[in-house]
Design a protein around this nucleic acid. Sequence first.
DNA 1: CAAAGTTTGTACCGATAGGTACAAGGCAAC
DNA 2: GTTGCCTTGTACCTATCGGTACAAACTTTG
Lengths: 193, 193
Amino acid sequence: MSNKRALTDRESALPALAEAFREHGFEGATLASLSKATGLGKGSLYNFFPGGKDEMMEAVLENIDGWFADAIFSPLENVSDPAAAVTAMFDDVTAYFRSGRRVCVVGCLGLNSSGETFAVKVKDYFARWISALAHCLEVAKVPPAMAVDLAEEAVSGIQGAIVLARALGDDASFQRIVRRLQSTLLDAIGRYG
Amino acid sequence: MSNKRALTDRESALPALAEAFREHGFEGATLASLSKATGLGKGSLYNFFPGGKDEMMEAVLENIDGWFADAIFSPLENVSDPAAAVTAMFDDVTAYFRSGRRVCVVGCLGLNSSGETFAVKVKDYFARWISALAHCLEVAKVPPAMAVDLAEEAVSGIQGAIVLARALGDDASFQRIVRRLQSTLLDAIGRYG
DNA sequence: CAAAGTTTGTACCGATAGGTACAAGGCAAC
DNA sequence: GTTGCCTTGTACCTATCGGTACAAACTTTG
């Protein structure tokens, strides 16, 4: 297979690209910084991503979305033990966002106008997260309207915790907030399950 | 007074500057866009803000902080009726952030490395908000540890609501989340007050 | 090894970034 | 009206932006 190498390298550059976008934002990330982050020259970068920065971000979003689909969304959508699934979600999310030290690329994109190009992907990511979590709560017999409300609150709360933890430079606050969100959900599950 | 005009114009440019920084972020806001937003030429901009973009953002932060100090922090710090103060805070915040359509400049600054220059101001803003709100809850006889937790949760929750509402393009979600946060606080006040 | 295709560094492009210099214009005080 | 200060537009600077071109180097295939 002639394109095996190419695809592999393109794929393996994504985490570094994601990290660079996380650190500097989409506008703030220059080709020079992306080149340094990945260890690839400009030539290679444009070889793998002919569409430039836009295509790189697109690929990064796809990659992130894939990770979340596997690690977060699917387990919630195909849940058998809701309480365990919720606990696992919070554990995975805390690890993924490094207790708020790591920023959510998707959330950040939505915040300024440079991300308008990716608006659909951003929206879908959050919509799917909320509906997956709401489904999980409904399986635990939480009334549908309340399930959606709680799911929305939890996803939003995680984003807020990232903002606050970054602003205060204090991941302990992230942990506290997320722990509270988790018990709110577990309480609801316990109440109806 | 010879410098009255100058100071007035500098001050009156701040809202437009803030809006431009909100829309494009700090890195994304170019001098051209700042010039267009304020209606001031480059010459005037550098006359009022010799330090360039950094000084403009500094002034914008100062301005925002002043507004919050007057409208949000002080009423919480010098509270007599905690329930009314909390309700007023949520009303003012909802109006200020236009139900999440408007982004929080301070929160955004904390998210990427371009805001490191302003880290102290960002941190102080959130720290003061949380401690003012916690104080308000303590006046309502909420136990101190719980007051801090609730305050942290509320401030963080507002930031999360902005992120989510922007991402989904749906201010109704902002309203729902903020209403929930408000009742959580009012419940606590009612329970102990 | 030779042929064919991939991957890479380097040099380069026009556009625009943030910032400076400065002369012309506007405005108050006398 | 004239003086002196403040304000402003324009022209200009260098650095860097995202992006292109392309030949050299490397792989893979036979």
